[in-house]
Amino acid sequence: MTPYLEITDLQVEFPTQDGTVRAVQGLSYALPLGRTLAIVGESGSGKSVSSMAVMGLHDPRSTRITGSIKVGGKEIVGMSERNLMAFRGADASMIFQDPQSSLHPYFTIGDQIMESYRAHHRVSRKTAKARAIEMLDRVGIPNPGRRVDQYPHEFSGGMRQRAMIAMALVNDPKLLIADEPTTALDVTVQAQILDLIADLQRDFGSAVVFITHDLGVVAEIADDVLVMYAGNAVEHGPVKQILGTPLHPYTWGLLESIPAVSGTPGPLHPIPGSPPSLLAVPNGCAFHPRCEFRDRVADGLCGEKLPDLVARTADPDRLSRCHLTGPDRIFETDILPRLP
């Protein structure tokens, strides 16, 4: 299957007075229609920055972007502002973390959805409003005919996020980027929103990039997982395998730092240290200063050479960026007994 979204060797850098912030360094991945990719990582791992680059949302005056981002065959890197305008919202759209601050407080929900629709369709206000009501109904907002004329502050948090989703999908985009869409919501509402996104994806057959740091959400929604660290992908593969037998020590660390609900309560195993500054990313593997397995790689290779993101087991769909040999065995013997 040809991928709808294809990113090749993407670099996103922000020149600042203190030096260059290397937010994304050599990221590559591909996503076909009808699949959901979860991008996982800590703050500053580059997951949001790379997704903003897919939408062409970085200010070209303060950002340096190289590499290639192809969406439906169109190259986004270096695209003119005029073409970007036609692309955004129509071919790809985005839902953001906090629906409270992401909706304009001074315009009605209907106005904002209609604006999105009319930006890409030459239709009357009346037609656009009917479309807005239809979309609100589709995302499960009761009484949409009345709700369409209300302001965001008259909506609850979950309803606001539903309205955001309605706005994002009003033009039937083939690519939907959801940047932590459930982080600001109550747990019960989170599940509803996840169901809704999964549901809509089935109906629209679109490709979904789901950014999150919540591995529970990943298990729920993703087909594939991309784990990012310090601006780079460290592991990529199908969700079952990544959450079941991860290959990269960073992914092990993420899994181990989740408190267990069942089983005997024991101490958590947080990853020691904190993510590196993007102004000075460590040489070699960016994770090596925090990695408790670096001594198992000979000659201090971890501190010198950045490993490639390649298949390291018999499974060709599973990619990992780590010098360790036989990581699946290490996971089974050393990590699994520690996991609850």
Binding site: R88, G89, F96, P105, A119, M164
Partner: peptide, 26 residues
């Protein structure tokens, strides 16, 4: 710098409309 301006940008409307409709109003 508000989030809703980023949302407006992601909708594919013109920069002029973003500044003069969404920005000036607020």
């Amino acid at each position: 710098g508000q989030d809703y301006i980023r949302t407006a940008r992601s909708k594919g409307i013109s920069e002029r409309r973003i500044v003069y409709r969404h920005g000036v109003r607020a």
